[in-house]
Design a binder for these strands. Structure first.
Length: 675
RNA sequence: GGCAGGAUAGCUCAGCUGGUUAGAGCGGCGGCUUCAUAAGCCGUAGGUCGCCGGUUCAAGUCCGGCUCCUGCUACCA
């Protein structure tokens, strides 16, 4: 969402200035991860990505992010563009073919990336290490050297199988790419240096762009059984999305992608830098398309200085933010006020967020309208713009400086500049004290003049912030009876117009709501080992999850005990009757006819998996459970339920309907007994 | 291990091509005000600019070394 808001602000700016600009985005849908997830959920990848598309677009809409077109890389238009670029690569003799040995999961019938294989480190004997390197001793090795290797997906022992792969040879474009990355100005200097030092200092390696079936993606037309690697078709989706937009609006694709007058700007996260700064420009070059004027790379979103991640429970979704009752414009402003053109990570700090929203937006900006509009509801604005000591002119004169900051993606600077205007305006209010003027009927004209000045300054500020706060701009428009959607409105004061009845424009942020956002159902779960996404968790990270506010409150804890008093004493023998085991969630799905139940497939490491019905539907999404470890009662007598046999029970904590699953510290494996 | 980036007030950061008493916002502290969504205004305290050395009339700013932090990368590109 950081990225989408950043891009959105960037796009609204030229639109505000009267330029023709379009904002395109698409779901990146292909690849192994999606395929396997769909398999686990027992549906087709197409069904999965269709759901994701709906969910993504709903979230974006809720944050005022308005795309001109939202596509998918799994579209006919994209297949067509991919084929065209592929032909161009073939025509230039840039495609090579050779055989490569790859690890293969015989159960899932799929080749495995190294991150999808875990086993024992060949150097230090560390358990459950990835196929590329050991996090315990730091050594690296080929996945084939891993002892007791098993597939993360199925647990099966992988086999080595030869696979015919297609490569794009990039050496011929070395000088072109060197020149573009170092001299075009499209890249941030850190990025240009990174590329120069990592890739361009030696001959570029061939790029492996094919994956053997089964693979969710596009079949390569002239290579049976081969699919394009997701990073081949993903960026081409930019062009495909443009094409779909062109078809809808009757425009020509070439007028955008092959027009030197058209500026293409990409926004992306630092994790996918090289795809967009080497392979992508290479593809564009070969395909005869316009290269991006700017590739703007941003950092990750942190929470309180820590990497935000699902596995640590600090992951907050757009939906959670909104469900906590927080305002979309506040987040937009907060992000904008922290984003510069650099790659720095963006640290979300709750107190700072509350402060910025309340002090900057409510206290300084909206407050301008709120402390002046009421006085002129009856009279409207003065017919002639009064002497304001040069305030309006000074604010108008700042337009180019503010514009330059937007243009440079330095939104932090842009919002800072605008806030200085709000400060000046509040000082003016203070000085003129309209509340004093109001008491003296003889000074009615003066009062009207003062409010005219304040509301005009407010209007300027809102226009300047329109890219960041579109919703506020709309409300200000209704108040002032004038739009706030053209940059040059800051140059001419509004005079003689009516002023509508003042209404609240923005709610103050309550700190409690921000806290609530971090404690959604199931947030404090330690999700599992290296499964799904194939990204390493950095180092040994025990359960660092956010602690529910209530639990850290002694009073609430006492209350909890009162609600559920301690049970009668038992002997150690009694306890040992219960066989508690660590289990891994292999699959999870909602039980259609049940209100509370999820059907879990649990693995104890070996032996048959267990089918367990757990009453946690209200607290956990099935997909967030897959791959994580839980604690189960393994020797509980099986019980026939309406929906089938339940062979065990999953342990969870909570009162009053709360459900918090338990997770072991890192290192515990499925099958371990709790003693 | 390789590479990149960073280290400036309690916090987040500005400090361009080296040049007067190192800045901003937030926070802290003191006061004023009451029109406004307990909002606003004024004042004030805080820094050996990571450490060591060098160049210079002059260095946070350039050069060398060191320490620490972060990220990327290491097999797959």
């Amino acid at each position: 969402m950081v990225e989408d808001i950043q891009t959105e602000v960037f796009v609204r700016f030229p639109k505000l200035r009267g330029h023709e600009a379009i904002y395109l985005c698409a779901d990146d849908t292909h690849g192994t991860a999606i395929m396997i997830r769909a398999q686990k959920e027992g549906r087709t990848p197409e069904a999965l990505i269709a759901d994701m598309a709906v969910q993504h677009q709903r979230d974006f809409a809720a944050f005022g992010v308005s795309f001109d077109h939202y596509g998918s890389t799994n579209s006919a238009a994209n297949l067509e563009q991919c084929s065209q670029i592929w032909q161009a690569l073939r025509a230039r003799g840039m495609v090579a073919e050779r055989s490569v040995d790859r690890l293969y999961d015989p159960v899932q019938k799929t080749f495995l990336a190294d991150r999808f294989v875990v086993g024992t480190c060949p150097k230090c004997g560390g358990l459950d290490q990835y196929g590329d390197s050991c996090e315990k001793c730091g050594s690296t090795y080929p996945a084939t050297e891993l002892k007791n290797p098993r597939s993360v997906h199925s647990g099966a022992t992988p086999e080595l199988r030869p696979s015919r792969q297609l490569f794009v040879q990039l050496t011929g474009l070395q000088s072109f790419l060197t020149d573009w990355t170092q001299n075009s100005g499209a890249l941030q200097t850190e990025v240009a240096n990174y590329l120069a030092g990592h890739f361009l200092d030696k001959p570029l390696q061939d790029w492996d762009v094919s994956r053997p079936a089964p693979y969710f993606g596009f079949a390569i037309p002239d290579a049976p059984g081969q699919f394009w690697y997701v990073w081949f078709d993903a960026p081409i989706g930019y062009i495909a999305a443009t094409k779909e937009w062109c078809q809808r609006t009757g425009q020509s694709l070439d007028a955008w992608w092959r027009n030197p007058q058209c500026e293409v700007v990409h926004f992306l996260g630092k994790d996918i830098t090289y795809f967009h700064t080497l392979f992508w420009p290479a593809l564009l070059h070969v395909g005869g398309f316009q290269l991006p004027r700017r590739v703007q790379i941003h950092g990750f979103l942190l929470v309180n200085g820590e990497k935000m991640s699902k596995s640590k429970g600090t992951f907050v979704t757009a939906q959670q933010y909104l469900e906590a009752g927080l305002d979309a414009d506040c987040l937009r402003y907060y992000y904008a006020s922290k984003l510069s053109s650099k790659i720095d990570d963006l640290d979300f700090r709750p107190e700072e967020f509350v402060g910025k929203a309340n002090s900057d937006l409510v206290g300084r900006v909206v407050n301008l309208a709120s402390r002046s509009a009421r006085f002129v509801e009856a009279t409207g604005l003065s017919a002639k713009y009064p002497d304001d000591g040069g305030l309006f002119a000074r604010a108008a004169a700042m337009r180019d400086t503010i514009a330059a900051a937007y243009e440079a993606c330095d939104f932090r600077e842009a919002t800072r500049l605008v806030m200085t205007l709000a400060d000046a305006a509040n000082e003016y209010v203070e000085q003129k004290a309209p509340w004093t003027l109001k008491k003296d009927p003889a000074r009615a004209a003066e009062l009207q003049d003062v409010c005219t000045v304040v509301l005009n300054l407010f209007h300027q500020i809102v226009v300047y912030l329109q890219p960041v706060l579109p919703s506020l701009a709309g409300k200000a428009s209704r108040l002032l009876g004038s739009s706030c959607d053209r940059w040059n409105l800051v140059e001419t004061p509004l005079v003689g117009t009516k002023v509508a009845t003042f209404e609240h424009m923005m709610a103050r942020v309550e700190a409690a709501k921000v806290q609530a956002m971090f404690v959604p159902a199931g947030a404090s779960t330690e999700a599992a080992p290296p499964a799904a996404k194939g990204k390493a968790s950095p180092g040994p990270t025990p359960i660092a999850a956010s602690v529910p506010a209530a639990a850290s409150d002694p009073a609430a804890a006492a209350d909890t005990l009162a609600k559920e008093p301690l049970a009668a004493e038992i002997s150690i023998d009694d306890f040992q009757k219960i066989d508690l085991r660590i289990a891994k969630v292999v699959a999870a799905e909602a039980v259609a006819d049940a209100k509370k139940l999820l059907r879990l497939t649990l693995s104890l490491g070996s032996g048959p998996t267990r089918n367990v019905f757990a009453g946690i539907k209200g607290a956990y999404e099935p997909e967030q459970l897959v791959g994580r470890l839980v604690v189960m009662v393994a020797n509980l007598a099986p019980r026939t339920m309406k929906f089938g046999m339940s062979e065990g029970m999953v342990i969870a904590a909570g009162t009053d309907g709360e459900v918090f699953l338990l997770s072991p510290d890192q290192g515990a494996r499925p099958g371990h007994r709790l003693h």
